[in-house]
């Protein structure tokens, strides 16, 4: 597996904006099932596609001397969910630049509708030669960029029925859950290890856990508690579906050998939605904080809202 989420760059104005394509196949590593037998691409991980696309506009502007690493995201909103076979249109804009950081926005579109929106993401500009050999990144860009390549058409039939025998590999973002005495709290453990394939590309000279995987771990912890509470209240046909993440703050790099401890605290819960505050720590030091909102949906409502 490679951790390269942009398949093609179609238009690029260095330092300003960029457009590209990402195709989703059955071989993708980050497929998951929110409802049984409906495989979708992880709504958290797809943000990486938008982030990687924007990073090209920054890398080109700074002539392969820096690599952006996302540290703060204001809001991160999910619209449509993505299925294997979909072709996504990626868009990114840079609002402002400074010597050490950049402020940008990113979007993922499916059939002209927004699948995911990243608003006001602050990237720290890290020296490229400490993360990846610049030559390797230059070659990657050469392979990705085709000027004037047509962006995905808007009318793509998404009315798909899945064959039952298709099985996807179930990933686990959290290795172990620890239930708290307080029923509104839950703790999870995620072990970070060098064998993971995404460390080949993130980054080749220095392995760092991709930010989206930190967010995924926090979302998964909160989701576990939301599912538990729904079952306790007898609402077994409802499932928590990620609606948005806000106030995302990444405070340090997480590396192989680290143990990420995630804590989720429920602050609001109703039949329709739930709200969580999460905190991730490494060696008792703050690594990330996120506020997460889920909406609770039945399978029919989920199909109408996210898969139409």
């Amino acid at each position: 597996m490679r951790f390269l989420m942009v398949d093609k760059i179609c238009e690029i104005n260095p330092g300003k904006s960029v457009k590209g394509i990402k195709n989703i196949s059955w071989d993708d590593y980050f497929l998951e099932e929110i409802f049984p037998n409906i495989p979708v691409y992880s709504p958290v991980i797809i943000a990486e596609a938008a982030a990687q696309l924007v990073s090209w506009a920054i890398i080109k502007e700074r002539d392969y001397t820096v690599k952006p690493v996302i540290t703060i995201v204001d809001t991160y909103t999910c619209g449509k969910h993505i299925m294997p076979g979909d072709q996504l249109q990626l868009e990114g804009e840079i609002e402002s630049f400074s010597e050490e950081s950049a402020l940008c926005n990113g979007r993922v579109l499916i059939n002209g509708k927004i699948a995911l929106e990243l608003n006001h993401a602050v990237c720290y500009l890290y020296p490229l030669n400490e993360l990846d050999p610049p030559e390797r990144i230059k070659t990657q860009f050469k392979n990705l960029y085709s000027e004037g390549y047509p962006l995905p058409k808007k009318e793509l039939n998404r009315n798909i029925t899945f064959r039952e025998e298709i099985k996807i590999r179930k990933r686990k973002a959290i290795d172990r859950f620890i239930t708290d005495e307080d029923p509104e709290k839950i703790t999870g453990i995620k072990n970070i290890t060098s064998t993971e394939d995404y460390f080949n590309d993130h980054f080749s000279l220095r392995p760092i856990l991709p930010g989206v995987l930190t967010i995924e771990a926090m979302v998964e912890t909160a989701k576990k508690l939301a599912e538990k509470k729904l079952i306790e209240q007898g609402l077994t046909d409802l499932k928590p579906v990620l609606k948005n993440c806000s106030k995302i703050k990444m405070r340090r790099f997480i590396e192989p050998g680290d143990q990420l401890i995630t804590e989720a605290k429920n602050t609001e819960f109703s039949d329709e939605k739930s709200l969580f505050k999460t905190l991730g720590t490494v060696n008792s030091k703050r690594a990330a904080t996120i506020t997460i909102e889920f909406e609770h949906l039945t399978v029919e409502n989920y199909k109408k809202a996210y898969l139409s």
Binding site: D175, T193, T195, P256
Partner: peptide, 13 residues
């Protein structure tokens, strides 16, 4: 040394 064991390791499939 330390070796962390994560649920996503390929050998666990």
């Amino acid at each position: 040394g330390i070796k962390n064991i994560s649920s996503e390791e390929d050998f666990l499939i």
